[in-house]
Amino acid sequence: MEKLRCQRIGCNATFTYDDNPDGSCIYHDSGPIFHDGMKEWSCCKQRSHDFSLFLEIPGCKAGKHTTEKPVFKKPAPNPRVPISSQTLDKNEAPKEACPRCRQGFFCSDHGSQAKSVDPKASNGTPSESKSVLQEVPAPPVKKIVDVNQPQICKNKGCGQTFKERDNHNTACNYHPGPAIFHDRMRGWKCCDIYVKEFDEFMSIPPCTKGWHNADPVS
């Protein structure tokens, strides 16, 4: 019997209707909340700043697999409290207090602000010489994996189980990224597609083919 892909958020497993016991699916039953660079599941309050780690947060509900895509109710937006100049610490730079700068976005108010100068580099010694003396870290050691061992691909948008013996340069369909969240829009910079709803974002088809990768950090 043909295997089907579960559509619940947080599951991504395959199943058949004859083998779908209750409790086999672990998933999130409420949508995410994005606020000031933080990603949070509204159903279990688990959160992360990193989008890849956010998607790896295990589900908090158990049930049966399904092919029906979930429909999430829009959570109430978190109230934004305006920051007045009187509430800022006198020693805190305006750029450090700007929410856009803290999230890594370009800010027209602080984009041209001069960077702070290292006082140790102002004694006539070029600051570049300091970086030359720093020890270069050794490259990470690649794990040795059995070619027949099942692994889960961690490339964004894939999540399939694979074996290294079957891996090749077009085996994986994925998004090289990065994921973009800005002004209530969600999308992928790699394929320049943006949507408003999170379930639509998760359904954006991958735009790149390559090797499956179970350990993208290394």
Rank of each mutant, 00 (worst) to 15 (best):
P119C: 03
C6M: 08
Q113N: 06
S203N: 12
K196R: 15
K3I: 10
F181H: 10
D18W: 07
E164Y: 09
S84D: 14
Q160N: 12
C44N: 02
P216G: 05
T125G: 00
V145P: 01
R165F: 01
I152T: 14
P70F: 13
M185W: 15
G124L: 05
P70L: 06
Q149F: 13
P32D: 03
F162P: 02
I204R: 08
G63R: 06
F162W: 09
H182T: 15
A138F: 07
G157H: 00
G210T: 02
C11A: 04
F201Q: 01
W41Y: 11
K209D: 08
I33L: 12
P139D: 09
C107V: 01
P216A: 07
C158G: 07
V195C: 05
D192K: 09
I33C: 07
G210S: 05
A171M: 04
E96C: 11
L88F: 09
P94W: 01
D215V: 00
D18E: 05
G59A: 03
V136W: 10
C158S: 04
Y194S: 02
A171P: 08
H168Q: 10
R100C: 00
W188P: 02
Q86H: 12
K64S: 08
D146N: 14
C43N: 02
E197S: 08
E128L: 12
N123Y: 09
E128V: 12
G177K: 03
Q160D: 13
C44V: 02
K189S: 11
K154I: 00
L88D: 04
